[in-house]
Design a protein around this nucleic acid. Structure first.
Lengths: 150, 150
DNA sequence: TTTGACCCTGTAGTTTACTACAGAGACCAG
DNA sequence: CTGGTCTCTGTAGTAAACTACAGGGTCAAA
């Protein structure tokens, strides 16, 4: 317990947490990092808790959470006595969203494989089954429903 | 064969193809739609080929292609005598990319399910396994490798 | 002739998550 | 005291794919 409050500069924190220098100020503006203490010259002063917070953010990102959602997770984390139900729900919702995305991508892949397999790459573009499928001249794959994304 | 060249206004084309009015000008700037003929007042004049082109774009989008890639597909389509090998390759690359994305999402989902299943939602945030996993206090899921995305 | 619907242009805003830059001030070594 | 390296601020740029708006011109019907 020699340095319970080691002071980090902004670049020090960036190094520590493995993020870009500017990311820190960006997160501060977004409310993901609290506005830190300043020294006499106005320099930001960080500590290990801030580094931990950045690690938290990065891990949550790797699990698929957006910064908006991570902000919510952080605010829940800040209330130790609160029920963790909301956290669980956020996780479940994210799992659902990922599942849906995987489903969509699989469907997309399947449609693309179907039309791609109809093309051997040894003809001209004018008779290419892939291009024809995109033109709607052939419904090689049944998919390609209009107005899909939104 | 009564109207082999029915003239469409911009809003007419938008209606026909089911896209937003401004999208058309956006695509023109991006080079996805050719600059159309203009009438005496400078109004854009489209025809059925333009509507087909928009349909092509939408279908290709539904198959996961970006506008940049679609531009390439369109330029290949414009050369009927050219080999369709490049088209086939673009399709194969896209399938690869989708496959990779599905793999990443599955891994993400698995990690999230592992840490989420450790939480029943009946405790406080201070002892929430999900938050702990994000803090790195528990490596509930082995994943969460740093520096994942890029 | 007036009104409303359309069209034109350039530009700016949206979302997500940063990243970069310019111009100014601070700090430390030599 | 002079460099060079830090830090500060506000703002702008990146990618992707649009979407919206302001300020004007055009056209057709009543």
């Amino acid at each position: 317990m020699q340095n319970p409050l080691q002071i980090l500069t902004r670049s020090g924190l960036a190094r520590e947490a493995g993020v870009n220098l500017e990311t820190i100020r960006f997160y501060e503006n977004k409310g993901l990092l609290p506005a830190p203490e300043r020294n006499a010259s106005g320099y930001r002063q960080y500590d290990e808790a801030d580094a931990q917070r950045l690690v938290f953010i990065r891990r949550a990102q790797n699990l698929g959470f957006t910064l908006r959602e991570i902000k919510e997770l952080l605010s829940l984390r800040a209330l130790p006595k609160k029920s963790n139900l909301a956290v669980k729900q956020l996780a479940e919702q994210k799992i659902e969203a990922i599942t849906a995305k995987i489903r969509d991508l699989k469907q997309m892949k399947q449609a693309l494989e179907a039309i791609s397999s109809a093309c051997d790459g040894h003809g001209t573009t004018s008779e290419c089954p892939i291009l024809q499928a995109m033109e709607g001249r052939r419904s090689t794959a049944n998919g390609c429903k209009a107005g899909g994304t939104k």
